[in-house]
Design a binder for these strands. Sequence first.
DNA 1: GTAGGCAGTATACAAAAGTATACTGCTAAT
DNA 2: ATTAGCAGTATACTTTTGTATACTGCCTAC
Lengths: 125, 125
Amino acid sequence: MSKFKDFVGEEKGPQCPRSYILALTDTLNVIQGKWKLPIIASLLRGMNRFKDLLASSEKITPRMLSKELKELEINGIVQRIVYDQTPVLIEYRLTESGRDIATVIDSMIDWGMLHRSQLMPTKSQ
Amino acid sequence: MSKFKDFVGEEKGPQCPRSYILALTDTLNVIQGKWKLPIIASLLRGMNRFKDLLASSEKITPRMLSKELKELEINGIVQRIVYDQTPVLIEYRLTESGRDIATVIDSMIDWGMLHRSQLMPTKSQ
DNA sequence: GTAGGCAGTATACAAAAGTATACTGCTAAT
DNA sequence: ATTAGCAGTATACTTTTGTATACTGCCTAC
């Protein structure tokens, strides 16, 4: 049976274990926001410098990129690595969990495709 | 390999198939927003009337519940069923896809728990 | 005929998320 | 000395999302 099934709002108290709720909100924090997934995708593809990430997700502003990277770092999804050379070089890299989140995204893609095919049985595109 | 890996922002064009991006954004639309998951959980637990949903997610306002249910209906997650008796009875029910989304949520819970255990190896709670 | 339940809607407001534009401090090369 | 690149920060917005509070229309039971 689904782990999620017994989730309810905070006030009534969840029926499923609290650890499930914590885990779920962690995951939501990682994928929520307009730029999180584009940034994670760029990191997966090997972009690791600020300027490259800025260029790869065209239209993101440095303010947003900076903010999102900080949140991802706080949440243990990326590491910020400072190479103490001149000029200083800074790299962002996905942690192991960060790389693993692709499996969650893939399950979202799977569900989405199944869902679309059920809505429009013939032309599923 | 991950389906998601080659996602990038719209301007540069995604490297992964467009159908993946559509599927992913569909899924995000279903789970995004403060009340979507609490509502889906309540529906999974067999709540199907407006007043019951209002009461189960304590603190949600009728305006928000109404809005979220409409979006879920548009996205093919819930059906609104009108029983033409007096007084009229209206039920909200998850579609098959709607029920299936629990598997996505479960994969989010799984990742979140793994992630937590990697951040704090000893006490994973 | 009035009070109450059901299924919402209307209006106004507050808070959160995102954008635009300009700027900083450091170094390195010309 | 000046210009340019890197890695951001600062300030002031605009847009989106969510909240508060009150109200509607329909029916039923008292």
